[in-house]
Amino acid sequence: MKRITLILVTLLFGALIFVPGALADGGEMAAANVLAANGRTAEAIRAYENVVSQGVDDANLYFNLGNAYYQNGDLGRAILNYRRAAQLAPRDTDIQHNLALARAQAPDQFKQTPDTIVTIFLADMAGWLTLNETAVLTLLFWTVLCLALLVVRRLGHGRRQMLLKYSLLPLALLFLLSAFTLGSRLQTANTLKQAVIVAQVADVYAGPGEQYGSEFQLNGGAEVALYQTRGDWAQIGAPGAALRGWVNGGAVTAVNR
């Protein structure tokens, strides 16, 4: 029984360590870096975007691309790429710094400061762990909890069993906390798509078409929620505000590719 358990646990985390994915041509990235270092930001942007178009999803790539857009004066795309980088590497202080710097420049900001313990906790977790890391951590707590249960049952009666029994409660709490965080993040990712206004100024219409009349405008860099798309139009809204409307699809880009 013990052997079976050991084999299964090894398989479990061994499988999680496996990271599939393509390795981009390092030369292309190096060339883009050189262009950016020499101040040829427009060319650097093209080179970085070319790497992105190959399906690469790397935090450093998005960070460098965000820098290039920022230096090129495209605040919207700078924020977009910094956010993509932050999703992949939330603990990277350089990414956090540059994202905050870009956000401070954006004329339109719709952020809501979390107020309850739950929202504060969720916000902190989102800024510290990626979704994958949260998922692995939750699975880890679940596995440890189950193994502890197995050991408690095996130990029979005695001091060790009592000690281990008391440790089940904090383990269970950790698992529940982690599972709640994972569930919240999954639900948010599935129901509320985040997007950034990438046009300099985007007219927001009452409906999916210019014949509906422009209701208000949003400046580049505004971070919005993306509700739906219809043809060439996208319905967006300001998180935390009741402002909703439609913009031309080219004026807004979702953070998740």
Partner: peptide, 19 residues
């Protein structure tokens, strides 16, 4: 001050989400 770019050349696809 903008933090400078990262001088890394090896980039990889993070892969699909585990979930």
């Amino acid at each position: 001050e903008l933090r400078p770019m990262k001088a890394v050349t090896a980039v990889k696809d993070a892969g699909p989400q585990l979930v």
